[in-house]
């Protein structure tokens, strides 16, 4: 090192500050958000219960008893009562979380991968490619999501796999749109030009410079869609297009219990309450994540 640069070294005004990465900053802010943390706790609880259902559920989700049908909440041995076939509600709600969460998360995850890919390609390449991808997506976007999900499920037939396919198709357009608009913004920043000027190819630039700045905002948006997906999946089951009896799934349970609404309203409302609580928690957590990521740099 030359004497000249040693001299400037003192000019640059160096103040050692503990360095924090962007994501650790986000986590720190998120940890201070009480609402988001409470929601996260509820979600983790529901998720753990669903995963370890065989260990914690008091009974068998499929074994019913004709003589113990529609018992109220608080019945001995059946803390949350029984359903129309005499099956233990608590057990079924715990088991039902498995499918419901699965149906909430998997389609959004699929759509997140495919939609981000489409959006980033459209946003980075621009021009005619952008036109082709985004206009195609707009066609899907034109349908209300519920109608689109019902139409695709109806065409493919009932079943879990088909529900996942139809819900994935429903969520690709909104995610791709968000990914495209964020990519377009990032693409026009000077650091992308600097990367191009250093001779990097499009794939390298997307991997190193674009994705890091795009995935975060798109992820936040996608977490907000999980609740929508759960509700849509429940709706499909309700219409007989999703899960089939005797599977335990909150939407399906809500459907089969609706006949009991006058007999045991509290029991009949339980699956709905679970859907409601889980979606609210996903939404509030997503909001918290959004504001934690919105750091003024």
């Amino acid at each position: 090192m030359s004497a000249a640069s040693a001299a400037v070294s003192s000019e640059a005004g160096q103040v050692p500050v503990a360095s924090r990465g962007y994501w650790s900053n986000v986590l720190r802010r998120l940890a201070r958000d009480k609402v988001a943390m409470a929601c996260l706790a509820v979600l983790v609880l529901i998720l753990l219960a669903a995963i370890f259902a065989p260990l914690i559920a008091p009974g068998d989700p499929y074994r019913g008893s004709i003589i113990r049908r529609l018992r109220p909440i608080g019945t001995e041995g059946y803390p949350l009562g029984t359903d129309e076939l005499g099956r233990d509600m608590l057990t079924r709600l715990i088991y039902g979380g498995r499918l419901s969460l699965f149906m909430g998360i998997v389609p959004v995850l699929n759509a997140f991968l495919i939609g981000t890919f489409l959006g980033v390609v459209a946003g980075y390449v621009g021009g005619k490619t952008n036109m082709a991808i985004m206009r195609t997506i707009d066609v899907f976007y034109a349908f209300p999501s519920v109608l689109l999900a019902i139409a695709i499920s109806g065409a493919l037939g009932a079943g879990i796999f088909n529900s996942i396919v139809s819900l994935t198709v429903v969520f690709i357009p909104p995610i791709a749109r968000v990914a495209e608009s964020v990519t377009t913004q990032v693409r026009n920043l000077d650091f992308v030009d600097a990367a191009r000027a250093s001779g990097a190819g499009a794939l390298t630039i997307i991997r190193v410079h674009i994705l890091g700045n795009v995935l975060g905002p798109v992820f936040v948006y996608a977490t907000g869609l999980v609740s929508v997906s759960m509700i849509l999946a429940s709706g499909l089951s309700f219409l007989g297009l999703g899960t089939k009896p005797p599977e335990a799934e909150w939407g399906l349970m809500l459907n089969t219990l609706r006949t009991a609404i006058y007999v045991q309203p509290a029991v009949a409302a339980l699956p709905g309450a679970m859907i409601f609580v889980t979606s609210i928690c996903f939404n509030l957590f997503s909001d918290g994540l959004r504001s934690a990521m919105d750091v003024k740099l």
Partner: peptide
């Protein structure tokens, strides 16, 4: 090589 005017926009905030 080139140096840009906007010192902030020309560095990737995530790197």
């Amino acid at each position: 090589q080139m140096v840009f005017q906007d010192s902030f926009a020309s560095l990737n905030p995530r790197l």
